[in-house]
């Protein structure tokens, strides 16, 4: 049994694999298959790659429908459930609001500009079936940023398990999925970053199955007219969110934990906490007053 740690970059994030690989398996092959799986998701769903499926769908907005495969169709179905469960807060079409709010702006956008931006978004306006998708207006955009990295972690864990790995950890930019406990039976210790600190952990969570994801509004922000705004935009109001600073969630699947923690940050503080409670999954939320909430410590 060999412990292999491999670090790489995919989907714009630092990623890490820690796998206990039985001697009978080819270590290099196991690792390269897992890394290839992460890169496959990046190539298919990154909106920064002009050849990706998402770029082709976005480029055809208002023009024509694009064929999709069963995997993409299943992800779209999943994001529909997220949209419905969050009453519209989780919306993979909300990305075009980035043209309204961006890093280099000097003045706040007018309400008119915001409302024009809102007319270009709405998951319920998408036209898709199991075989194809059509974005009905020019300028409409899909952004799988909120689900694909998380789903990729699940897919890599499933792939590793199918190759015979029984103990391992997949970390894609802080979204962590574990395959069983560590080889000696102890849980994996996973640190949750203190959003008000300088990289130190505010909690250490033990995970021996399932996934832990953290969403934070502290990672990226911008300042306009002397005020700090989150990079997260509420797709219902068109304004940057002012809610929880960080939410960490444990669930069986990374994609589920990830969408729960993402939705928690899109609401206001009270709404985010109510959402986390209604989900009945273990969580740790930190509000703007640096107060911790939730069942995880």
């Amino acid at each position: 049994m060999n412990t292999v740690t491999n670090q790489f970059r995919a989907m714009g994030c630092p990623c890490e694999l820690r796998l206990f690989i039985p001697d009978k398996l080819n270590q290099e092959k196991v690792v390269s298959c897992c890394v290839a799986e992460a890169l496959r998701f990046e190539e298919k769903y990154s909106r920064y790659r002009p050849s990706s499926l998402v770029s082709r769908i976005n480029a055809a907005a208002g023009v024509k429908a694009i064929d999709i495969d069963p995997e993409t169709s299943a992800i779209l179905d999943y994001t529909r459930v997220c949209f419905e469960q969050s009453d519209g807060l989780f919306d993979i079409t909300a990305g075009s609001l980035r043209s309204v709010w961006h890093q280099n702006m000097k003045t706040l956008p007018s309400q008119e500009v915001i409302e024009r931006g809102l007319t270009k978004i709405g998951f319920d306006k998408l036209i898709f079936s199991t075989d194809s998708i059509f974005l009905p207006f020019t300028g409409m955009e899909l952004d799988f940023g909120g689900v694909v990295k998380e789903y990729a972690a699940d897919a890599i864990a499933t792939l590793a398990k199918s190759m015979g790995i029984q103990h391992g950890l997949v970390n894609l930019g802080g979204d962590v999925c574990v395959i069983g406990a560590q080889q000696d039976g102890t849980a994996w210790p996973i640190g949750v970053i203190d959003p008000f600190g300088h990289g130190e952990a505010i909690a250490r969570i033990e995970l021996s199955e399932g996934a832990l994801t953290t969403s934070g509004s502290y990672e990226r922000f911008f300042q306009v007219e002397g005020k700090t705004y989150s990079h997260l935009i509420n797709p219902l109001t068109g304004w940057p969110v002012e809610g929880l600073v960080s939410a960490s969630v444990i669930a069986e699947q990374t994609i589920v934990a990830g969408s729960i923690s993402s939705i928690a940050l899109l609401a206001d503080t009270a709404g985010g906490l109510a959402w986390l409670q209604s989900c009945q999954a273990p969580y740790l939320a930190i509000d703007q007053n640096k107060v911790c909430h939730g069942t995880l410590k």
Binding site: A74, D154, V256
Partner: peptide, 13 residues
């Protein structure tokens, strides 16, 4: 919501 999301996730390949 957790049940709905887990159910939807189970359809992912």
């Amino acid at each position: 919501p957790l049940v709905a999301l887990c159910g939807a996730a189970l359809s992912l390949p």
